[in-house]
């Protein structure tokens, strides 16, 4: 393969795979926004909290699976507690109030996790090294990290599990019902508060998965909370209410970001990767304000 093409493929694939990582974070936002109309600013700190809890447990000599299970339980409990203490008292309040509450929650969670586990950064290993796959680099001269591939598989599996949960189970159906129409859900006897607690618990689970993946990539440290900000352009592109949207949005952001950095960056002297995603998102806002997969409002004429 000519070097130019190989290089392009490498950049594109790297971008798409990075996009999957963004999508992982964006998923957590989508879940909560869909079910309760709350934009959960604290999703990033939940990611941080999950990763830090897991890494601290393993560093204390816990078995991998045990640590994973315990962290999962912690995240589920955390989700339920947040629903009880933050959201339930604010039910029926304007959206902006709830949004502000989640901003407050962000700082509480950040403080809490560092209070419990300390503030030094940790490295995280899942047994899959972040190194290029050998035969790809030898045969085609393309460097793609095997961990990226692994992360993509994990993300795919997670989405599949969520899809089955939403489509096939009684609770999943109730979740979609609540997302569609709160009032009607109440009227048929679906207890909104249970459903919200479940959604927060699921979002906690998604945060754990995202936290592990990002933890391996960048280390488990305070900066992990900023991954939430990376999810914003993904949501603007994909739409706040759509799981497929989050995935597609993530891929678009990941790919354009990397391609722009490599091919457009040099014109500006480089360093455009960190903000280019927002430019793309803004352009999208002008053309399609509801995002690619934003909920279609069904209007009968």
């Amino acid at each position: 393969m000519p070097t130019q093409v190989a290089f392009f493929v490498e950049v594109l694939a790297g971008g798409l795979l990075a996009g999957v990582m963004y999508a992982l974070v964006a998923l957590g936002f989508v879940l909560i926004y869909k079910a309760s109309g709350v934009f959960n600013f604290a999703q990033g700190s939940m990611v941080f909290f999950a990763a830090l809890t897991f890494v601290s447990l393993t560093e204390r000599g816990w078995n991998f699976w045990l640590a994973l299970a315990v962290t999962l339980v912690v995240m589920v409990v955390l989700g339920v507690v947040i629903e009880r203490t933050v959201l339930r008292p604010l039910v029926n309040q304007p959206q902006i109030t709830l949004f502000m509450a989640t901003i407050g929650l962000t700082f509480v969670l950040e403080g809490l996790s560092q209070l419990i586990w300390g503030s030094q950064p940790h490295g995280l290993e899942l047994g899959i090294a972040d190194v290029p796959i050998d035969w790809l680099s030898q045969k085609l001269n393309i460097n793609i990290s095997q961990f990226d591939i692994f992360a993509a598989f994990v993300a795919g599996a997670l989405v599949a599990v969520l899809a089955v949960f939403f489509q096939k189970t009684r609770i999943g159906r109730a979740l979609r019902a609540v997302a569609d129409d709160h009032q009607a859900a109440l009227a048929v006897g679906i207890p909104l508060q249970h459903i919200w607690a479940i959604v927060w618990a699921v979002a906690g689970f998604v945060a754990l998965v995202a936290g592990l993946m990002w933890g391996v990539r960048n280390g488990v440290q305070y900066a992990l909370t900023f991954t939430a900000l990376k999810a914003l352009p993904v949501l603007l592109i994909g739409g706040f209410e759509s799981i497929p949207g989050a995935i597609i949005g993530g891929l678009i952001i990941g790919a354009t970001e990397k391609l722009a950095e490599v091919y457009v960056g040099p014109m500006f002297g480089g360093g455009i990767e960190s903000w280019f995603a927002y430019v793309v998102a803004l352009l999208f806002l002008l053309v399609r304000p509801e995002g690619l997969y934003g909920e279609k409002h069904i209007d009968r004429v």
Binding site: A174, A187, V188, I298
Partner: peptide, 26 residues
């Protein structure tokens, strides 16, 4: 005791059958 609300309030993005099934949630 069940209420059928004014203006139907079906779950728009669910199928008819899924709508019916949500009624059996309790």
């Amino acid at each position: 005791i069940c209420q059928v609300m004014e203006g139907r309030h079906c779950f728009q993005h669910l199928t008819v059958e899924e709508n019916l099934l949500t009624g059996a949630y309790t």
